[in-house]
Structures are given as C-alpha cells and as structure tokens.
C-alpha cells in the first residue's frame, strides 16, 4: 500500500505493508534511525515524533494512518549547524546520558513548549509522563526544558520544531 508523507520537510512516497508501524517506516524505509523503539506497549515514549505538530508515539500509529501528514523527527530539529533550542538545552544542561530516550524526550518537550512557552517545573514533569528515562533521574531534563523555554521566549522568531 502506498504512503506519502512529509518528514522533516521532505516528501516521501513508499509502498508498505499496512501493518508497518510508523516507527519502523521511519527507521527501516526512510533510514531515519534517530527515532527509537524501547517497548511494545506504548509506554516508554522513545519513539515520540511530531505528527502534524503534536507529539505521538510512532510505535502506536500505522504508517498508513499518517498518509498526507507532516512529521518531525529528531533529525529534523536542527537547521543545518544550528541546533534547535531544545537540543542546545539538553546539551548545555546534561539532559541525557545514554541518549536512547533523548529524541523522544526532546520532541515531547517541544510539544509542551508549543502549548505552554513558560511551564513550571511541575508542569514539565507532568508533561513528560509519557517518556521514560532510566539514566538521568529527570532533574537535568527538567532543567533543560526550562532552559529551552527561556531561550525560545528570548529569541522571538527562533525556529520552532513543529513545522
């Protein structure tokens, strides 16, 4: 079955089995391996991408359901050499260790910052409940999201990760 989607601004058209999950479509058909698979139960959030601007678990979406959609993966966050503020903040604040949860974590944070540009610590922790991290203890992730919020509100017109 044919699927046509726009991923990180590039249009792709591929034939896939209907049972192909979006995450495997991205990883195996498009070679975008930055999106990870960490569980089978839609729990861990490692596979989080933005689907039409909203964070979704790409292990729980069929590729065929994404027909015509705009998708942003971790590979689409930076503009060339310029990191997205959330990437910069995760780097500056040591918001990652093994890095496996990080792409999904950052995209969930982008979804949050689009809705709420100035979240409290409690709101950040709550907004990340669909993303598990086993390394960091979350504290530096929270710091990173706060730092990104500051950077994004300071730099009006900074690129948003959404589209």
């Amino acid at each position: 079955m044919n699927v046509t989607v726009t991923v990180n601004g590039v249009r792709y058209s591929r034939d896939v089995e209907p049972r192909t999950l979006l995450v495997y479509f991205l990883r195996e058909h498009l070679g975008l391996t930055g999106t990870h698979v960490g569980c089978d139960t839609s729990t861990c959030g490692a596979c989080t991408v933005l689907l039409n601007g909203k964070a979704v678990k790409s292990c729980t979406v069929l590729a065929v359901q994404a027909e015509g959609a705009q998708i942003t993966t971790v590979e689409g966050l930076a503009q060339g050499d310029r990191l997205h503020p959330i990437q910069q903040a995760f780097w500056d604040e040591h918001g990652l260790q093994c890095g496996f949860c990080t792409p999904g974590m950052m995209l969930a944070a982008v979804d949050l910052l689009q809705r709420n540009p100035n979240p409290t610590e409690e709101q950040i922790r709550h907004a990340l409940e669909g993303n598990l991290c086993r390394c960091t203890g979350y504290q530096h992730i929270v710091n990173a999201v706060q730092a990104a919020a500051r950077a994004m509100s300071a730099a009006v017109g900074a690129p948003s990760g959404g589209e």
């Binding site: 839609s42 959030g45 989080t48 689907l51 909203k54 964070a55 979704v56 678990k57 729980t60 979406v61 969930a108 979804d111 949050l112 907004a127 409940e129 669909g130 993303n131």
Partner: peptide, 9 residues
C-alpha cells in the same frame, strides 16, 4: 488520561 502522546491520538 494516559500521557500527552496518548491524549494526542
């Protein structure tokens, strides 16, 4: 319900 990603879908 669930988490952000679940609520989005």
């Amino acid at each position: 319900i669930g988490d952000v990603q679940v609520r989005n879908r």
